[in-house]
Design a protein around this nucleic acid. Structure first.
Length: 278
DNA sequence: TGCCAGGCTTCAC
DNA sequence: GTGAAGCATGGC
């Protein structure tokens, strides 16, 4: 019988995480089965009513996946921060209380969110997967063959034509330059982790194709800087239509990014669109 | 078929 | 410094 670790946790919803738009390689295989490729390995998961079953050894769970899913953080504290009078945020939290802010590798997040600009989530997933198939290392496993996220060096070796074959459009030259910057040592993503938030954002903004929004995504999802608050079209729409153009961040200082994620997921939900006629 | 998508860069002014 | 135009492509 293969190894398995069961997680029972109120604030853990695989379906919500999979469609949260923060990672693009956690995919649904069936109603309750999911496949995650991250950290150079793959993991099968089964959604449970109060958590998930991780199909791996206890050691792999402890060393790799518990940190990845940020399991030592108590998200109920963030959920409880929504004030009684903010009915919209309370509904957003209720809708997304199983979300986690994943601790992904900065390089993968950087590439994924350079790709993300002016694309919807299915299109991003498709481009990321095409890129992995094109130049990612095959993972040691049975059929079907799956591919790790490509290293900067492997991406830098691609021609512009090869990059464009992943439906990257005008983003291909951004990715090519980013891959060169990292593979040639002009940009040390690991070293950036030692910088404070302001210096980290400044460094990320030197990368072509990275503006304030993408930089905030990389900070939040790649460096676990929970104060990052990416403003995309969905968030701006919510702030404009629900908060009169000004969302109060001060009450959520230090975990603005978690609140942002609740807002983002609720804004894209059917509940929200039906309720607000959008 | 047309609008939109986890925006950024460039170029007038 | 600010605002508008242009950008490639696929989902819905």
């Amino acid at each position: 019988m293969s190894a398995m670790v069961e997680l029972h946790c109120k604030n853990f919803d695989l379906a919500a995480i999979a469609k949260s738009g923060q990672c693009f390689r956690l995919t649904s295989l069936s109603a309750a089965e999911y496949l995650l490729i991250a950290n150079g390995r793959q993991l099968c998961l089964t959604a449970l009513p109060d958590g998930a079953a991780f199909h791996c050894t206890q050691q792999e769970f402890d060393d790799c996946w518990a940190p990845y899913f940020d399991l030592t953080t108590d998200y109920s504290v963030f959920c409880a921060a929504a004030p009684q009078e903010d009915l919209f945020l309370r509904e957003a939290v209720r809708c997304g209380e199983g979300l986690r802010i994943l601790r992904q590798e900065p390089w993968e997040v950087l590439v994924s969110f350079i790709i993300s600009q002016r694309k919807n989530i299915p299109a991003i997933q498709k481009s990321v997967e095409a890129l992995c198939r094109l130049c990612g290392e095959p993972l040691p496993a049975e059929e079907p063959i799956r591919y790790a996220f490509p290293s900067p060096a492997r991406m830098a070796a691609l021609s512009m034509e090869e990059l464009c074959s992943c439906s990257l459009g005008y983003r291909a030259r951004y990715l090519h330059e980013a891959a060169l910057m990292v593979s040639e040592g002009r940009l040390d993503l690991a070293a950036l982790g030692a910088l404070d938030d302001a210096a980290l954002q400044e460094a990320l903004l030197t990368i072509p194709g990275v503006g304030v929004k993408v930089a905030n995504c990389v900070m939040l999802f790649g460096y676990h800087r929970l104060s990052g608050f990416p403003r995309d079209v969905w968030i701006n729409r919510v702030i404009d239509t629900v908060y009169g153009g000004d969302f109060p961040l001060e009450p959520y200082r230090g975990f603005e990014g978690v609140i942002q994620q609740y807002l983002f997921c609720y804004a894209r939900s059917r509940d929200y669109r039906e309720k607000y006629g959008i």
